[in-house]
């Protein structure tokens, strides 16, 4: 049995594979880097599969918190793991967009699923999940409702600022000027999509484009991204676990090789 753990800034994910590469179980816990989240998610994924720790032949950890998690046999970056996981699920994928809490990444794959090139956001939080959280807070809306709110928009407003702090004051003054919340929400999604599209532009976009990571569940971001990069964006069934799946695949290879 092979375990992959993906410790992000806001969530911890785990996947267990058997030696025929079937997914036995997966788990997502809403606690990120630290000790609690990773432990909980590993415990959950083991119990779902009805396994105990000793039955794991090899484990790989990935994600933002991979350096601090000591229990895995090996650590590999989320770039490689998202690539591996995505390619496994969708061999036609050539471009992966992964928007996480802290980072946004664009990864290009070759025909064999190897990473050809990748780009990550700079220090600025615009274009990441963090930006959407700030926007949700201003709009007094739960983060998972932001997309729904945005779908009700009647017109498209522009949030022009790159800087999250600036964007915050821009949005506040737009609300004060009577702009509707749903229109602002739509603008926020578009702003994120624009930043990520800019990132993608740096290394080029080649279809099929696949989106992974938690933000992929947000339909408004996906729609806006499709508009910006002018390509269809496929969202995998459980986009959050793709990194952990890739890690588990690596774990399998370590033994198999």
């Amino acid at each position: 049995m092979f375990l992959g753990v993906d410790i992000g800034s806001t969530t911890s994910k785990a996947v267990i594979l058997d030696s025929k590469l079937n997914i036995l179980s997966a788990s997502v816990i809403n606690t990120g880097t630290g000790t609690l989240g990773p432990e909980k998610t590993v415990k959950a994924v083991l119990s779902k599969a009805g396994l105990n720790e000793k039955e794991i032949q090899y484990s790989v950890v990935t994600g933002y918190g991979r350096m601090t998690y000591q229990k895995a046999d090996k650590q590999i970056t989320e770039i490689s793991c998202h690539a591996r996981g995505t390619f496994f699920l969708k061999p036609n994928a050539r471009t992966i967009i992964d928007i996480g809490g802290q980072d946004a990444k664009v990864i290009r794959l070759d025909e064999d699923g190897r990473v050809k090139n990748f780009a990550m956001n700079d220090k600025c939080a615009a274009g990441t999940g963090r930006f959407l959280e700030v926007m949700a807070r201003i709009l007094d809306c739960r983060i998972n409702r932001l997309s729904v709110l945005s779908q009700k928009a009647t017109e498209e407003i522009n949030i022009s600022n790159t800087c999250t702090v600036f964007a915050e004051s821009e949005v506040i003054s737009q609300l004060a000027a009577g702009v509707k919340r749903e229109n602002v929400a739509k603008g926020a999604h578009k702003a994120v999509a624009k930043r990520v599209a800019g990132l993608a532009g740096r290394i080029g976009v080649e279809p099929d484009v696949v989106m992974t990571g938690g933000v992929a569940l947000n339909k408004s971001v996906v729609d806006a991204l499709e508009q910006e990069i002018k390509e269809k964006v496929t969202v995998l069934k459980k986009p959050q676990i793709v990194g952990a799946l890739g890690a588990a695949l690596y774990a399998f290879e370590m033994i198999d090789m």
Partner: peptide, 9 residues
């Protein structure tokens, strides 16, 4: 660059 200005500020 329109992104680097805030009317409120």
């Amino acid at each position: 660059d329109p992104r680097a200005f805030s009317l409120a500020q």
